[in-house]
Write a protein that binds this DNA or RNA. Structure first.
Length: 400
DNA sequence: CCCAGCCTTGCGTGCCATAG
DNA sequence: CTATGGCACGCAAGGCTGGG
């Protein structure tokens, strides 16, 4: 059983902080081989190793036992070469990067996650020596983060990846004896402790009417490239990263070939780099998306605005970034008085329409670029019907 | 679990229309 | 002619979600 500093059911962070310090302190004092004695003057004495001194040690004197212990702890702490959590973390991560086990984008992700979880203001452990992190501390660390940082399940799983990675690496290097695998196996965390981000269906897709309003709003004025790109998203279900990197050579008579996507990572100076990656999000992402007659018409309109560019969607000679589409869609939603939704919701709307339209699953999978139809059904299928439509469907079914 | 995208927000800047 | 303010986009930073 793990012990945890809990008072009235609430983890006491101060207690845990003290415990970390106590563990460190105990360790150092045990390590100290010279004895501590009280002299006739009532003061406390001990020796500390000192290579500069002829005797190889120097005598220290303090007025209290605690003060002399403080001095011992300070001394060994300064000499301490045992790594902190953050040091283990960065060694682990650079090793992984070196071996090509993770990509640059993942490193970025881990970096922000590490800051978020391990350097949080409630119970940070980044700068603690990893050897003194025991199971009790670790459990408090995890539970504090979950409750104070209001983590979702997903966020916790991100945190777990780091914890497992760091502690497995630390054990391999003999920085700690703690077995993270068995610790995690024993750790019980209630699903209830996680924050849920519940979103209703109408926040996740557009209804038929809303899509119509958007299209009308765009087409009634002089549509810009960005706006036409938004319409394209509704008509093809493409990811925004795919739209923003389309070239005319990708567009065929009846289909659009998807082979590129927008990526972002930090360069060595920490600056963000937006780039075009010559393969889509997943292998299934390579695909030919069938387009209909009205989409072809749309493509003609787009071509008139930028017929010769390297990319279809360009402004001032530069590729338009994915976020420009999302922003513009927000504004359009505001203008026509419907709830703001991102362009990715156009993809979900598209998928919902295909499913409701009884399109064969194999076709839906290809159009969406999914390897498994479950992905589409689980994450892209929502109820975007109005109440009267729903009533109609149900009435029809009941009368049969 | 590992990976890679998407989402949201703040800020800077250039453009444009309009007010002063 | 200049100040001002809205708008749209780029850049950053950090959080969330999807995919195999």
């Amino acid at each position: 059983m793990l012990n945890i500093a809990i008072e009235n059911g609430i983890i006491n962070i101060d207690t845990i902080q003290k415990k970390i310090e106590m563990n460190e302190r105990k360790k150092f004092i045990e390590k100290h081989t010279y004895s501590i004695w009280q002299g006739k003057d009532g003061k406390f004495y001990t020796y500390l190793p000192d290579e500069d001194n002829k005797r190889g040690k120097r005598l220290v004197k303090r007025t209290s036992e605690k003060a002399i212990e403080d001095e011992i702890v300070k001394f060994y702490k300064a000499k301490e070469d045992e790594p902190t959590v953050i040091q283990v973390y960065s060694n682990w991560i650079s090793e992984k990067l070196e071996y090509g086990e993770i990509t640059r984008q993942t490193k970025d992700k881990y970096e922000t996650n590490f800051k978020r979880f391990f350097e949080n203001k409630y119970l940070p452990i980044a700068n603690r020596k990893i050897r003194y992190i025991d199971e009790e501390i670790l459990e408090s660390f995890i539970k504090t983060a979950i409750s104070k940082l209001e983590l979702t399940q997903k966020a916790y799983s991100d945190m777990r990846i780091l914890i497992n990675g760091i502690f497995k690496y630390a054990k391999k290097k003999h920085y700690t004896s703690l077995s993270i695998t068995s610790f995690m196996g024993d750790l019980e965390i209630s699903e209830k402790s996680f924050k849920k981000n519940h979103k209703s269906d109408c926040e996740l897709v557009f209804s038929k009417d809303e899509e119509l309003l958007i299209e009308r709003f765009v087409m009634e004025n002089e549509p810009t490239l960005i706006e036409l790109g938004i319409i394209l998203a509704f008509k093809t279900g493409l990811r925004v990263g795919e739209i923003s990197t389309l070239s005319w050579s990708d567009v065929g008579e009846n289909k659009i070939h998807i082979s590129k996507t927008e990526i972002r990572y930090r360069d060595d100076n920490g600056k963000y780099v937006f780039d075009v990656q010559n393969f889509p999000k997943s292998d299934a992402g390579f695909r030919d998306v069938i387009i209909t007659a009205d989409t072809k018409e749309l493509m003609r309109k787009i071509k008139m605005l930028n017929p010769f560019g390297q990319y279809i969607f360009m402004k001032n000679g530069k590729r338009i970034k994915g976020q420009a589409f999302t922003r513009r869609l927000y504004v359009i939603c505001d203008r026509i008085g419907i709830g703001e939704r991102s362009i990715h919701k156009a993809r979900k709307t598209y998928a919902t329409k295909l499913i409701d339209g009884n399109v064969p699953e194999s076709v839906i999978k290809t159009q969406m670029g999914h390897t498994d139809i479950r992905t589409t059904l689980d994450h892209y299928y929502f109820n975007n019907k109005t109440e009267s439509e729903m009533q109609e469907y149900i009435a029809k079914a009941l009368s049969m």
